[in-house]
Design a protein around this nucleic acid. Structure first.
Length: 257
DNA sequence: AGAACCGCCTGCTTGC
DNA sequence: TGCAAGCAGGCGGTTC
């Protein structure tokens, strides 16, 4: 599933491919997305990422906000045929960008471009003081807290598990019970893991592919996610899988305290 | 206010 | 082999 590094990978590819160019037409193949059929054609002036949302800003002042959720993908294609599970396409003079999404969770919104800052994206703009004051004090377990998109944008299940393993912090700990030192460890681990994820062009553990259908390489870097029953690379104990808030958490019960 | 739970979706895996 | 049930989960919304 696309998380911050995957969306960043797509964003960089989109910047190269479509920034500065005209969207000639928009086609909608899924009734669920009919709400945006009044989208105006225009020239793309920027492609940015905010958390897991891709923001495509047009010269007439509207922005297209795409969230891929679970199985959404963006796919560049020169040919005119429509790939399976296509929900939407943007046409350019030499090809099209398709939103492909088997599960239909992806969302697309059109809004007037805003410049306000949210400041909850770890890799671009993060207000650490504000986070520690308003979010870190919650009683929610740290794993679920890391995945709260209002607290921190862009971290999903895979990277939350990896960050906690690298920080050696148990996923059961409450946010409010962590020391300042432990939070520092989490921020440092998050920075390294997300940077590595971007360098490796995302984690292709299930069906993630980039704009050109290429797999990422970061699945080889994963230490706990998807490794239930395998030995921990740090201590050799067996990695466990449990459920938190309805989602799988993978962790090492020996390393993570 | 915050924590917990629900609904949206459908391809894939598992069990009989 | 074939079919039904169960599972996967980001996140906005609802409920308590």
């Amino acid at each position: 599933m696309p998380e911050l590094p995957e969306v960043e990978t797509l964003c960089r590819q989109l910047q190269k491919k479509i920034c500065g160019r005209m969207i000639l037409a928009t086609e909608i193949y899924d009734k669920k997305l009919d709400g945006i059929k009044n989208i105006k054609t225009g020239r793309i002036i920027s492609v940015e990422r905010q958390g897991k949302t891709i923001i495509i800003s047009l010269d007439h002042g509207d922005s297209i906000k795409i969230h891929l959720r679970m199985t959404g993908r963006l796919f560049w294609q020169k040919r005119s045929d429509i790939p399976p599970y296509s929900r939407l396409s943007f046409s350019f003079d030499d090809g099209r960008v398709f939103l492909v999404d088997p599960r239909r969770f992806a969302t697309v919104k059109v809004e007037r471009t805003k410049t306000e800052k949210v400041r909850n994206d770890l890799m671009t703009d993060f207000d650490e003081k504000d986070f520690l004051k308003k979010r870190a004090c919650r009683k929610m377990n740290i794993k679920t807290l890391l995945m709260d998109p209002k607290a921190i944008a862009g971290i999903g299940n895979i990277y939350a598990c990896e960050i906690l393993h690298r920080s050696k912090i148990s996923p059961f700990r409450q946010g409010s019970a962590l020391s300042g030192k432990e939070w520092k460890k989490i921020f440092a681990a998050a920075g390294r893991i997300l940077t590595k994820g971007i360098e490796k062009r995302g984690t292709s553990i299930s069906d993630w592919r980039d704009l050109y259908g290429q797999k990422g390489e970061n699945q080889r870097e994963l230490k706990v996610y998807g490794r239930e029953g395998e030995k921990c690379t740090m201590c050799g104990r067996i990695i466990c899988r449990i459920k938190q808030g309805g989602r799988s958490t993978f962790y090492c019960p020996a390393c993570q305290r």
